[in-house]
Computed example of a mutant assay.
Amino acid sequence: MTVIPSSATLPAGAQPTTATPSVARPARTRDHRIDALRGIALLMMFVDHMPQNLLNRLTLRNLGFADAAEIFVLLAGYASWLAYGRGFPRYGTRETLTRLAKRCVKLYVSQTLMIMAFIAIILTWRQFTPVPVDFLEPELAHGISSFWRVFLLNALPSNLNILPLYMVLLAAFPLMYVVLKFNRWLALGLSAALWLLINIDPDVNFPNWLDPDGWYFDPLAWQFLFMIGAFGAIEAEKYNGNLPAFPWLKVACGLYLVFSLFEAFPWTQWGLPVIRPLALPSPDKSTLAPLRLLDVLAIFYLVQSSPLAKRFSETRFGQALALCGRHSLEVFTVGTVLDLIGRLIFTTFGEGWLFQVVINCAGLAILYGVTVVYERKRNRARAQAAAHRKAAA
């Protein structure tokens, strides 16, 4: 999603709307930080969605107020501007809206397939050993009589609720784009006002048949983080993909993240004395509480304003992470199903070190294999498209 296409890689039938420049511009180098950071977030989601997994003690959820979900949504907004915000003037409204619609359909299909896989795996596992009811909401665990609610996004089971949020935000992106083009500060202000309203009155939410409180990720609140991502992409364009590096702001972000670390760290799980400056309650995730918002913004600013982070993203390990980020939907879908299988194995056979090592190593290897397969598929498609254009020319 973060690819910046050139006129040589336009979709079939699409034409750039700008005239050919008279002066050649220097080639834009790809910034892999967004892909690498998104790859890290996806792998953390894989680890976090298995409560018995000891690795999740080292993920963002235990090192600060925010976690991988905030990173994912912020980068989704950033990447959406690069993919679709630039697409409107480049390819035209019709082509860009078509691409947006296709992406939403793909997200919807992935969401439905994951829920069907969950139900099939759990019902099969129950044939051999008992499975705790919390692996799937009781309303869906004993049959498919209410499955139609899944298709209407009226029933969102736990761990399967972030793709519907992404669908809603993508569907709203054309409206966001119009306001951003009119006045980006006005767009950010309106988005912030809506977020503030939801934090004042958390009852304003989308309905969820499985939860009387509504969607776990309230779209009316989380749209602010998505908007900030798009706004950040616009600002970064002015500095070749970087955010302006202000030393005082970096220090402030670093100090806030240290404070967040001390407040959120699982001291008792590590057998350590509790060292919390204020002992604050966990900030609400559903409404994207201010402490969580500040946490993810501090991380994003430090990464996107750092030359060191850019160099890391170009290393071999950074490129492996970026590969996961470029195929985020496939990694998330497969990883979520693997999470369920891992949880079932832990629950059935125990949480010993052998299973910890096997499940984590096998799961991460499978996810990386998925990215390799889809990257090769993408490269073949590009090579065929280039060959067709060459033949046509």
Rank of each mutant, 00 (worst) to 15 (best):
Y256I: 06
I144A: 13
A289K: 06
T17H: 14
R28T: 11
V372E: 14
G85V: 00
N161K: 10
M44H: 11
A172G: 01
R90S: 11
L140N: 04
V73Q: 09
L113N: 05
R57D: 02
G232P: 05
L280K: 08
F262T: 06
D211Y: 02
L338R: 05
F147A: 14
K238T: 10
G352C: 00
Y374C: 07
L302V: 04
V373G: 06
S22M: 13
F332Y: 15
G189I: 08
A392W: 14
A298Y: 09
L165P: 08
G318H: 07
F317P: 01
K310G: 15
N161A: 14
Q127T: 11
L220G: 02
T98K: 12
I228S: 04
P273S: 01
D211N: 14
L188I: 02
A68C: 13
P273D: 02
T93Q: 13
N360L: 03
L163D: 01
V3D: 12
P207D: 01
V131M: 00
M176Q: 13
P273N: 03
L220Q: 09
I200N: 15
E70A: 15
N199A: 05
L308Q: 14
F46D: 05
A69Q: 08
N208C: 00
V179E: 10
R126L: 00
I122D: 11
R292A: 09
G143D: 01
E314L: 15
L10G: 04
G229V: 04
G363P: 04
L249F: 09
A383I: 03
P174E: 04
Q15F: 12
A322S: 03
V373T: 09
G229M: 01
P266R: 07
A79G: 13
N53L: 02
V109H: 02
T9M: 10
A8K: 13
L10P: 10
L60W: 14
F355K: 11
L288W: 07
E263R: 08
G271A: 02
R25N: 11
L37Y: 02
P89N: 04
L302I: 06
D31Y: 03
V179L: 15
L175C: 10
G77D: 07
G342R: 09
L249Y: 03
A193T: 09
R380Y: 11
A309W: 00
A76W: 00
